[in-house]
């Protein structure tokens, strides 16, 4: 009996339940299978606590054998289990909002009884930490990309649209204002040394957007400085005429102009 052996911890692995390293139950029937039902509901682990009595086990079986309406949002195993208010059965549910496999301990109100490898991994991938870290990496990558391009002018690898988009996104973000100066510098280097194609046109557009970003942050002198640099670049000897034309068009579009006034 569970009460005699202490806590029993079962892991849900798609169509089977495991206890330790052993499969203790398997059923691959798509509608009837208890493991599949749990798996679909995001349940990753079921723990039976010491002291569990027959009525609670029967209640649990009742829930697990209920035919579920798959289209219903409310009618799922987790909800039904929650409604039963089990006191000796704890479920560990995958956080639906997170793509990482992370147990949502808040849903079960139980401190973690045994740190498994999977959980340790998950803990290392807390989403909010990852996104901040990811952001830092994105900025770093954007800078490295631009630096690499600037350093190898003779055989430039045209940036992919994704990379250009990444750069564009970065310069639009307020917190990257401090690197926008450097970014502008390397962008100028890249633009000046690249062949005319769709990617280099995109990079020039990013320069134009940097101008607007500076305007929006009320760095008018900075915006003017960028426009001046773009104009200088457009006049550079040996620059592809199409690039010069585009630069001229951009500076014309963003140059300060007086509105009609008396």
């Amino acid at each position: 009996m569970p009460g005699e052996v202490g806590e029993i911890e079962l892991f849900v692995e798609r169509d089977h339940l495991t206890f330790g390293s052993e499969t203790v139950f398997q059923d691959d029937h798509p509608r009837r299978s208890i493991p599949i039902k749990l798996d679909r509901a995001g349940v990753r682990r079921v723990v039976f606590l010491p002291g569990i009595e027959r009525p609670e086990v029967l209640n649990l079986l009742d829930v697990l054998t209920t035919e579920l309406d798959e289209t219903s949002i409310e009618d799922d195993v987790v909800t039904l289990m929650w409604q039963k208010q089990f006191t000796h059965v704890k479920t560990f549910v995958l956080d639906e909002l997170s793509e990482n496999e992370r147990f949502d301990e808040s849903k079960v109100g139980l401190s973690d009884p045994g740190q498994t490898e999977r959980e340790a991994e998950s803990a290392a991938q807390e989403p909010w930490v990852a996104s901040e870290e990811q952001h830092r990496l994105d900025v770093e990558n954007a800078r490295r990309l631009a630096e690499e391009c600037a350093g190898t002018k003779s055989k430039l690898t045209p940036p992919t649209p994704e990379e250009v988009e990444s750069l564009r996104r970065e310069v639009e973000l307020q917190e990257t204002c401090d690197v926008s100066g450097e970014l502008a510098d390397v962008l100028f280097d890249v633009v000046a040394g690249s062949r005319e194609d769709a990617s280099s046109a995109n990079l020039r557009n990013v320069l134009g957007q940097l101008v607007v970003m500076r305007m929006r942050t009320a760095d008018f002198a900075g915006a003017n400085g960028l426009i001046q640099q773009m104009q200088d670049l457009a006049k550079k000897r040996g620059l592809d005429p199409a690039q010069a034309r585009h630069l001229g068009e951009l500076t014309g579009r963003y140059s300060p102009r007086s509105t009609s006034r008396k």
């Binding site: 500076r214 305007m215 760095d219 002198a221 003017n224 400085g225």
Partner: peptide, 30 residues
């Protein structure tokens, strides 16, 4: 007018250009 437009995130490019024309030295150049 300046502060109103600066505070307005929806200011269009034309409005911004007008501001730059009025206050070309505002802000710090990088």
């Amino acid at each position: 007018m300046k502060d109103v437009l600066i505070a307005n995130p929806d200011a269009n490019v034309e409005e911004l250009q007008a501001l730059v024309a009025y206050f070309p030295r505002r802000g710090s150049s990088n």
